[in-house]
Amino acid sequence: MKILIVEDEQLLLHSILDYLKGEGNVCESASDFNSALNKINLYSYDCILLDLGLPGGEGLEILTKIKALKKGDGVLIISARHALDDKLAGLDLGADDYLVKPFHLSELKARLTAIVRRKNFNGNNIVVFNEISIHQSSMFVSVNDNKLTLTKKEFNLLIYFLANKNKVVSKNAIAEHLWGDEMDMSDDFDFIYTHVKNLRKKLLEAGSKDYLHSVYGVGYKFSQQ
């Protein structure tokens, strides 16, 4: 994936760059309005992470420019402004998704992956990880052609893990992803434990290898080893 990160907070920018690099991802960054505009004019990206509060100009203007160029880059807005109006305006202008700061890097990666997949395959693609294949649109999962019956939460969890494979995903991030922050139940990790346990059991029973590892009780990692 080729990704442009438009973010003026250097510390955050570096974290995002670190997290996204690897797996053949190419990440570029811009820290102000003009350099962001330059890059958008010159290159095409699979997805652009766009911070709305930029020095030198209004982030929504960049979004307008991107859409005017009609290049089909995916746009994920990341903003500290939790204003519903901003969100609606962003989505109206053609942003694909909107993420409010502070966010978990794993959430960012999951959203990013989802946007790119939607763009490239219109959502009808099949995600394959070794013996596991997932049909996104039909919510169909199979291991070595053995069909798996997953609940909606387990399915979401699997997609989330695959988008963040080889990364440690914290329980907090999973909780927020599955229940959203509005429910205010994100401190309750018993559910996550249950869901992860069930997902793992179903995968193992269907004949997959054990990819899901608990990491120090803080989170989980979906990886080969």
Partner: peptide, 15 residues
Amino acid sequence: TPLAVINSKLDSLLQ
């Protein structure tokens, strides 16, 4: 913003 930085650094630290 600092909160977002703490959060992201925490995620990075976990890696």
